[in-house]
């Protein structure tokens, strides 16, 4: 049983190594000018320099903080509002068409609106992140609540559970698989919007840092920033899937 995850890990690392090798081959062959496309070695050097004493560490911290704050805000509003809507058939019928209208709006389209209201501020970026990450969580919660096994409602009636107990003990756990999947999606969206927001509003962080590096032809710094962003995404998603496995250990198949 234990050999299988190990083999998976080895394969994953092998794939990553192959990717870096390919990257090196392409840059060594100078298919693209080194001014725009640094090799893995130069990127690594820039990464180490930036993280030890350079500005990369604090920029990473800023971006992660922004991403997490926006994500938490979106999760809180999304799950709470989703639960309120999802628990009542009438509320669903009332609000669902409006949600469907707002949902496909690209979060980037909201950026000018947010700028008009909040200016080029940290709060503006936060609002954009929260707005973009809100939808998957909101809709997953609404749908998760609506999809609860009808038999369980009958069980709750016969046992005499009150409304709060039905929400907390039946609807929320039964919606949990959908909510957790949406939390993962929301985290990715939060990272994307954190970077875009920093670029547009010139707030400190990796987004601003890679934009500045690109404009001054510091391609190694640019790629160091991109590598860190990739690592943040990977790490966040891994962390959430560990949480997911723990919370959904009752499910038939673990992913």
């Amino acid at each position: 049983m234990k050999a299988v995850p190990l083999r998976k890990l080895v394969l994953g690392i092998g794939g990553l190594a192959a990717f870096i090798l390919l990257w090196k081959l392409v840059t060594d062959a100078k298919l693209v000018s080194p001014v725009f496309f640094p090799g893995p070695e130069r990127t690594y050097v820039a990464l180490v320099k930036g993280l030890s004493g350079g500005p990369l560490l604090s920029q990473t911290f800023e971006t992660v903080k922004r991403m997490l704050l926006g994500w938490l805000l979106a999760s809180f509003v999304g799950i709470l509002f989703g639960a309120l809507v999802g628990v009542s058939k009438r509320a669903r019928a009332f609000i669902a068409p409006t949600l469907e209208l707002l949902r496909p709006l690209p979060a980037s389209a909201m950026i000018p609106v947010a700028i008009a209201f909040l200016g080029f501020s940290d709060n503006m970026v936060l609002v954009v992140i929260a707005f973009g990450a809100l939808w998957p969580m909101l809709l997953a919660t609404v749908h998760g609540f609506a999809a609860m096994e009808p038999r369980l409602y009958e069980v709750s009636e016969v046992l005499g559970l009150n409304r709060a107990q039905v929400i907390w003990k039946l609807a929320l756990p039964s919606a949990m698989p959908m909510i957790l999947a949406s939390l993962r999606l929301g985290l990715t969206i939060s990272l994307i919007l954190a970077v875009v927001g920093e670029m547009l509003a010139s707030r400190e962080g990796l987004g601003q840092s890679i934009l500045a590096a690109s404009r001054s032809f510091r391609s190694a710094d640019l790629f160091a920033g991109i590598v860190i962003l990739g690592a943040i995404g990977l790490f966040g998603s891994r962390l959430l899937s560990v949480a997911e496995r723990h919370l959904l250990r009752w499910q038939a198949s673990s992913r």
């Binding site: 038999r151 756990p173 039964s174 009752w250």
Partner: peptide, 14 residues
């Protein structure tokens, strides 16, 4: 009341 479809009447997460 005991339902026939025990699979649906039980809480799978408990």
């Amino acid at each position: 009341i005991v339902f026939q479809d025990y699979g649906k009447a039980l809480l799978p997460w408990r």
